[in-house]
Amino acid sequence: MRALVAAGLVLVAAACSAPEPGGNAPSKAPAPRGLVVEEVAGGLQHGWDIGFLPGGSLLVTERPGGIKLVRNGQVTPVDIALDDLQARGEGGLMGLVVHPDGQRFTVCHNTSKDVRLVTFRLDGTKATKAEDLLTGMPSNSSGRHSGCRPTLGPDGAMYVATGDIAQARNPQDRTSLGGKVLRIDPETGEGAAGNPFIGSADANERRVFTYGHRNVQGVVFRPDGDQAFSSEHGPSVDDEVNLLKAGANYGWDPSEGGTRGGYDESVPMTDLQRFPDAVPAVWSSGSPTEAICQAAFWNGKLAITALKGSKLLLFTLDQDGKVQNVSIPEELDDKYGRLRAARTAPDGSLYLTTSNGSNDKLLRLTGTV
């Protein structure tokens, strides 16, 4: 049985727990049993995100620039032109979200100048560009910290998780779109009504929902509630799960208040000395990191994939969003390699992608947890 040691606490596949910030470690909980893992499709290359279409079909983005349509286990390439796609390092074609009309979808990708959100209309297996929804998100030529994943919230707004592109000033600069969770109008790309800085004279600041992030990998909303959670890569320590609060600072500042010219990754992920009002994480990996990725709610738990950790973590939360325990299903503990995408399907199953680089898989999870 494999164990994960983090911040002095052992998470074991058969019985696992994680620390509750500001309190004692919660009681242990048994790992889920009875999971069924189905390999829906293979032959993918760094599957990055998943979107569900009417009628049971789905789309999968691949970081090198492809989109696959998966229908009844059959995989068909989508005919799509991505202007000036730059797939380097961590960058390329990334997040995807299907619009409520079931015909349009928005993807996020790197170009030679920026990271941008582009909306397409799907007709069969051909995607036609509708508009550049949002351009000008910062991009690193190496692709580093290019995380970009859009999700539609229950309020109809589009929430976009972004990376700081490893540039020190971005996380705390509210006029930069890097190192943020954005909240935008899905039709115009402008800051959505009710945003915390909607009165700003700067268009980018009007789009900001939360700031002070390092490399956010996804945002997910708790069913039947108003809680939103983000999953975020730490440096050598402290991957974070954060409960998002409008206008809040999450405390990442590798510029140390502008006093450092480089990118100082020795600073805390949540620097409460520099920013006493910063919001602490509801869960932190400690050391080593897991490189947690996308989050989804499934069977009442918060499910988060891990790249470096090659596992799925299932978080039990209380009604306030505090983590009570963490379990690791044996069926997804270093069995498929690096896990990236996680989206809950309309039928209640959970879909995941692997991200090993070749012959990556689309997985479907059913069963009880």
Rank of each mutant, 00 (worst) to 15 (best):
V282F: 12
V60C: 03
D84T: 03
K335V: 12
M269F: 07
C16I: 03
S310H: 02
A161E: 12
V369L: 12
E131G: 02
D123Y: 10
V181S: 05
N140K: 12
G218P: 06
L44P: 01
F275E: 06
A29K: 13
E131R: 15
T162G: 06
V323G: 14
E90Y: 02
T106I: 14
L133A: 06
D253G: 08
R33G: 07
S284A: 13
V78T: 07
L332Y: 02
D155L: 07
L307A: 04
G348H: 09
Q172P: 12
P32Y: 00
V40D: 00
P54K: 11
G92P: 11
D83C: 06
W298M: 05
R338Q: 05
V40S: 00
K301Y: 00
G212I: 01
N299E: 05
L4P: 02
Y263L: 13
V107R: 01
A157W: 15
G321I: 09
G178N: 08
P223D: 06
N249K: 10
L365R: 13
M269G: 08
Q294N: 09
H213F: 01
L122D: 13
L4K: 02
Q103N: 14
R174G: 02
F315Q: 12
V267F: 01
F221I: 04
P54T: 13
G73D: 08
S57N: 01
L122G: 11
A3M: 12
V267S: 00
G156I: 11
Y336N: 09
R174L: 01
R214Q: 09
K28M: 14
A345Q: 07
A278F: 03
K361P: 08
D79C: 03
D173Y: 09
A15I: 04
G143W: 05
L59D: 01
D49C: 04
T61K: 04
G34Q: 09
T259N: 00
A41N: 10
K113C: 02
G286C: 05
